[in-house]
Amino acid sequence: MLAALWLHAGFASAEKPTLILGGPPWPPYLDEDQIHRGLATEIVESAFNKAGYPVQIKILPWPRLLRAAEFKEVDVMIGLWWTLEREEVFVFSSPYYVNVIGFAAPTESTFKPARLSDLTNARIGVRQGARFWSPFDFSTSLNKITVNTTESALNMTAVGRLDLTVEDVRILHNLINHDDRLSEHLKILPLPLVYRPLHMGVRRNLDNAETIVADFNAALAELLQSGWVATIYRRYGIAESPLDILTRTPPSMADE
């Protein structure tokens, strides 16, 4: 309660528009079943509260979400990885998390991809509409098989219909650890594909989009400084500090 009061005390909320925040189901980052609707939702909602913006939240499947943004029914995308095409549509906030994108493979797999070209012969399950990293997304020499959900891809990988499932590693761990059959048959490969900072994005055609992002960034900086973001991280089992996470630059396939 105190925390909520403190969050609201940061800025006067008068005359600030109500923002419609949207995101796809993407546990544990966006999750309608969680009390705070996921790590990403909670951080973004906290920062907007701190900045004095009332918000409503819509969790919609990705294709519907994009349409909703196009028809101005959603103002803010809760979690976005930056691409140039997306920057034309959304004003990006400062990052509030960094996703580690990696692969799940069958337990017995000896596959050890170290660079993108090592993936050429693998059947890779990719969640519909996902954009992970441009060289991966645009590559036509990779055998990427679109599936409706990451769970479907993992199930197919567990029974040998796919060689790999690509996704955020925390999501992979969550899904695998909560299913005995998957945990018996799947493992996470050690080298990630790439690290992607996670941003909030305000649609560019919303009035005062730049100001809204600037307000959000100022509030986010305060939440980082005060330890509130670290508290949220810990609630989702993340022991690393936000500073460590936001500045991490480990080896990945993007590097030599």
């Binding site: 930056w82 400062s94 990293w133 060289p135 900072p197 396939m253 993007a254 590097d255």
Partner: peptide
């Protein structure tokens, strides 16, 4: 100045 950076690597 904390102006923020959006970045991505090419392969």
């Amino acid at each position: 100045a904390q102006l923020g950076l959006l970045s991505d690597a090419y392969e």
